[in-house]
Amino acid sequence: MNVFRLTGDLSHLAAIIILLLKIWKTRSCAGISGKSQILFAVVFTSRYLDLLTSFISLYNTSMKVIYIGCAYATLYFVYMKFKATYDGNHDTFRVEFLLVPVGGLSFLVNHDFSPLEILWTFSIYLESVAILPQLFMISKTGEAETITTHYLFFLGLYRALYLFNWIWRFYFEGFFDMIAIVAGLVQTILYCDFFYLYITKVLKGKKLSLPA
């Protein structure tokens, strides 16, 4: 565990909690892509199946359980409790365009052709693009609530911090995982445009709105 890993995990946790609290406090999931949230639930579920096969630490187990629990709580909010506020008309990204290539790739490029390993690889690839329905929704409506942008910022920051964690691990432990690194790079790059808007607009007190 190094400082980048820990702050990355905490940033990820912050993002998830911010989203849940936003929906709970405003009693609304307006502006949130349910499709992205479904993809994140699939990511956590397929990656953390190792909860059943290996124990690493109390920290590791608790975080995995919290991530999975929050992912499904978010889905419950969006598709059941606050369904009336869900903006499905603008959540029109075709997720099969992500699921099919990502599924195919995880069968072709993995470390080991075994069910758990393929599911782990699938979750890594899927996570890298899971935010696209949300970004697509924002580009369609042309704006995002400020609290939603905080969510996106911490969610993007988390994988960027993991990139530093992997540099650290390569340097001090001689350890690297090409699948995670390439997917993590793709994931972080997808947020760059948003990071720019967040820094130049939201942090200066303006609402995030895109030119028509």
Partner: peptide, 10 residues
């Protein structure tokens, strides 16, 4: 081996 990353990281 990628064993550490697969289970240890989140």
């Amino acid at each position: 081996s990628n064993e550490p990353l697969r289970h240890d990281e989140l």
